[in-house]
């Protein structure tokens, strides 16, 4: 008798293999479970990382806050240092924007030719003909002699009769910072006894000269520090300093009568 397999062909178990009633759906589900598990793990890791990072950020923010508070407690010191710098800068600007009158006197004494005398000296900063004081003061209102001011000097005096006045004019041009030297008047003193209204000796030439200097420059910004020494050391200029400065040529002399002071 022949054996008959009553199990439908589609339900029969293949030889050597596992029964596959789901056509692979079970595998898909199994794989899906694994992937969902991976998804969950990724979420968990991300959650954990997020937690850690938020904690770290909070710590850093707290730390920054703490440091800021500490710095804020010392802000007054910073403000004071800034005040010092501000004052130093302003004072340095004022110092540097000044015209050096003493230097001018020294140069005048050194450059005037022998035999020439000065009977009056009048120097101003920002006088007529120069940059207007109002304009200059707009640039740096702190200083009474701000950058752009124009120093001018008017000189009256006596020069030797022959070639004295040209020599005076050319020598005055040697003074540092001089822009123009303008002769206003030159008159030979005809009186033999000297004196007269000009104070010059007979035969001498009385002159009136206007010297214009270069405009005061903007103060340099190279100054770094203000030194404030204690008790003043004897660094004051002495008469010898002036003599040394003016010793190269005849010193300038202003006197009522030129004869009295002429050397």
């Amino acid at each position: 008798m022949k054996a008959v397999n009553l199990i439908p062909a589609s339900e029969r178990q293949q030889s050597g293999g596992l029964p596959n009633h789901s056509n692979g759906v079970a595998y898909v589900l199994l794989g899906g479970l694994v992937l969902v598990g991976g998804l969950g793990a990724a979420y968990g890791l991300a959650e954990r990382e997020l937690h850690e990072k938020e904690k770290e950020a909070a710590q850093l923010e707290a730390q920054a806050q703490q440091v800021r508070a500490k710095a804020s407690g010392l802000a007054a010191y910073k403000s004071f240092i800034a005040l010092r710098q501000q004052r130093e800068e302003t004072i340095l600007q004022l110092i540097n924007s000044r015209f050096n009158w003493a230097h001018l006197l020294a140069e005048l004494g050194a450059d005037l030719p022998s035999g020439a005398t000065v009977t009056s000296f009048s120097g101003t900063i920002g006088g007529p003909g120069g940059t207007s004081t109002a304009t200059a003061k707009t640039a740096a209102p702190s200083s009474s002699t701000p950058p752009g001011s124009l120093p001018t000097v008017s000189l009256s005096g006596c020069a030797p009769a022959r070639h004295g006045l040209p020599q005076v004019l050319s020598r005055l041009r040697l003074i540092e910072g001089v822009k123009t030297v303008e002769l206003k008047s030159g008159t030979v003193n005809q009186t033999s006894a000297g004196s007269g209204s000009t104070g010059c000796a007979g035969g001498e030439m009385s002159f009136s000269i206007s010297i214009t200097f270069n405009v005061l420059p903007s103060p340099p910004t190279t100054a770094k520090q203000v030194l404030v020494p204690g008790p003043r050391v004897s660094v004051q200029p002495t008469a010898a300093t002036a003599k040394k400065a003016g010793a190269k040529r005849a010193p300038v002399s202003l006197s009522k009568t030129a004869k009295e002071v002429r050397r």
Binding site: I91, R98, T119, S120, F121, P229, R232, Q236, T257
Partner: peptide, 27 residues
């Protein structure tokens, strides 16, 4: 020189800062 500037970049303060605006000399 009450308040003066030295070339290396230092200002020395001994006293009151003064700016001389004009100078007239006569006998």
């Amino acid at each position: 020189e009450f308040a003066a500037f030295t070339p290396p970049g230092l200002a020395v303060v001994h006293g009151r800062l003064l700016t001389i605006d004009s100078l007239n000399l006569a006998p």
